[in-house]
Design a protein around this nucleic acid. Structure first.
Lengths: 228, 228
DNA sequence: ATCGCATGTTGTCGCTGTCAACATGGATGT
DNA sequence: ACATCCATGTTGACAGCGACAACATGCGAT
């Protein structure tokens, strides 16, 4: 088997890029997470098996237990990776969007939906019925998670007088529900087959977030958008 | 136990209410569905086992295979029951609500959310990652499903000039996403623990649907609601 | 060079999903 | 009335899975 030699370490006296150790395998923990995501994506949720994940990672059936206490712990790692990736993608899209509060909010919402479309296994694990506790997002300290980004977007819009006044928590929940619902409908394939491409999903997400934002706009203000 | 003839194929002199048979057990098929729902509700999704379901129904471990080809088929039966119940609850709430288009739409949305809060196992199975095909709602002929009720609510609102003009499909998707997202967040326990009661959920759903509807209202029309 | 402990392996157990063969009894036709 | 049929339920079996214990290996600190 021409797989990557199990030890890339030979020398590499400089390998502190954080994360876990890399003893025999290299980075089995991450390899298991990746294998789990690929397996869900290819074979569906029912095919997710610790033993198959181990097989794909090239180790025996009990090796995963050195990194995860049980199957649920592996899924939890997938979920945490998903929360971090989602927040990162939202921040990235917001960075390349116009800086007005409403456009920022729209960018956050669109990125939320697109994350789900691009990473269905992660999204399903994050919000699926696989955990006992609600499972907090828990990103690296100093980084805003997806929910915080929405909260900030709503607050900025209200502060600028572009969004209607009122309990910001209610408006935030409206925005969150809309993007979460749209993302869920995409992932669960409830939408007409017409919108199956990534571009179609993006276009739909843009239409929906703009529609919502214009609905939540301050009736007293002039326009519906702050970038045109 | 009131018996009911099994097949409608032969003669069915006086028993066309359809449904399945009831030989030895009575109505094992429905008993298995009920047991599955109770099991998910009590022990969680991971505890759902065909053998445990059979145990709870008082039959041996292979009996379910006389009614369902496999575990997925049992879940499909749960999902179909859920779709029918959801549509029925929505119709019931709409029947007791004011008859204005916007109040009807709001009632449909609130009932959608409340169905999820009241029947989390059904909701999760309906929209979970448990099936290969999208799984069409499929209600009894002549009865509108949940989506059709939302479509009709939007169309009525637009026809009455109470909702903004535009592609009705876009507005319908907005409404569907909002209620579906709110329902999903409730079921997956992503919301603050503050709103854990049924009344709190209902109040929140009412606030959210009204907020959405006022956002989608026709700016040309006078008020936001048609019942006050 | 040595040793310890993290990492990976082997073997095992109970449980599950699924199938085949068998048993039972209610419905059916004459 | 009665023999029969077949839908329903049972028994037994097999492979695969999650999880654990005991064992083996080798990296890294000493």
């Amino acid at each position: 088997m021409a797989t990557r030699s199990k030890r890339t370490l030979k020398e590499t006296p400089k390998e502190p890029p954080a994360e876990k150790a890399r003893y025999h395998h290299g980075d089995l923990r991450q390899a298991l997470v990746d294998a789990a995501v690929a397996l869900i994506s290819e074979e569906g949720f029912g095919a997710l098996t610790l033993r198959e994940v181990a097989r794909r990672a090239g180790v025996t059936h009990a090796a995963p237990y050195r990194h995860f206490t049980d199957k649920e712990a592996l899924l939890e790692a997938v979920a945490i990776e998903g929360f971090r990736t989602m927040a990162r993608e939202m921040r990235e899209r917001m960075a390349t969007a116009p800086q007005g509060p409403l456009d920022q909010l729209s960018a956050a919402g669109v990125a939320y939906v697109l994350f789900a479309v691009r990473h269905p296994p992660h999204f399903r694990v994050m919000f699926g019925p696989h955990f006992r506790h609600p499972l907090k997002p828990e990103g690296p300290p100093g980084e805003e998670d997806a929910f915080a980004l929405l909260v900030r977007g709503i607050a900025s819009g209200q502060a600028a007088g572009l969004l209607r006044a009122g309990d910001p928590r209610a408006l935030t929940l409206t925005a969150w529900s809309l993007v979460h619902g749209l993302a869920s409908l995409f992932v669960d394939r409830q939408l007409e087959e017409a919108v199956k491409g990534l571009e179609a999903a993006e276009a739909l997400a843009i239409v929906q977030t703009r529609l919502l934002i214009s609905g939540l706009a301050n009736p007293g203000a002039g326009g519906n958008s702050d970038s045109r």
